[in-house]
Amino acid sequence: MKKVTAGHDALGKFAPKFAELNDDVLFGEIWSREDKLSARDRSLITVSALMASGILDSSLQFHIQNAKNHGVTPEEMSEVLTHLSFYAGWPKAWAAFRMAKEIYGEENQ
């Protein structure tokens, strides 16, 4: 998996410990444990958690893209978001679908 540097890039000087935990621990240690849970599955779990929590910003966008990069198909993403809509809420699903549609591109519209 490609090294994530978002924490250091955005907060490295202001919040160096948070940046370290984000980049080195969360993405470096936890996400790298693919023998325990695949990056694909971690991506789906993360998209689900963010949507359910109402975090409908660039974090969700990043993780939908990450899910696509880890092999989640447009059909699978659509099914996940549809399923989540009944638990997380219809407006959250609409927001997530807009992001997913943009990320998965014209071929799936």
Rank of each mutant, 00 (worst) to 15 (best):
D41V: 12
Y104G: 03
H8F: 14
L26Q: 01
S48E: 06
L21S: 08
E76C: 06
S53Y: 02
Q61S: 14
L81A: 11
A6G: 08
G12M: 05
V25N: 00
F18H: 11
K3Q: 09
K101N: 12
R42Y: 02
S32F: 01
A39V: 05
S43K: 03
L60T: 02
Q65E: 15
N66G: 10
L37D: 07
T5A: 11
E106V: 08
G12K: 05
F97S: 13
A67E: 04
T46W: 04
N108F: 09
E79T: 12
L56F: 04
G105M: 01
L84C: 14
Y104F: 05
E75P: 01
D23Y: 03
D41G: 06
H70R: 05
D24R: 03
S38A: 14
G28F: 00
A6N: 12
L50A: 05
R40P: 06
Q109S: 14
N108S: 10
V47G: 04
Q65F: 04
E29A: 04
Q109V: 11
P91D: 09
I30K: 00
K36P: 01
Q61E: 15
A10L: 15
E20G: 10
A39W: 00
M99S: 12
K2Q: 12
V4I: 15
D9H: 07
A93M: 14
P16H: 04
E79S: 13
K36R: 11
E75T: 09
S32N: 09
A19M: 08
E29V: 01
V4M: 13
L44P: 02
S85W: 08
Y104E: 04
R40M: 06
K92I: 07
A10W: 08
S48I: 03
T5E: 14
M99H: 07
R98Y: 09
T46Q: 07
D23S: 05
H70T: 03
R40K: 15
K92D: 08
N108R: 04
L44A: 07
G71H: 01
S48V: 03
W31G: 02
I103C: 03
W31R: 00
E29C: 01
G12Y: 08
A67W: 01
A88C: 08
D9Y: 07
A49W: 02
I30G: 00
D35Y: 08
D9W: 03
S59C: 11
A95K: 12
K101V: 13
S48W: 00
D35L: 10
V47A: 08
G105A: 01
A93P: 06
M51L: 14
N108D: 08
K2C: 03
K17Y: 11
G89V: 09
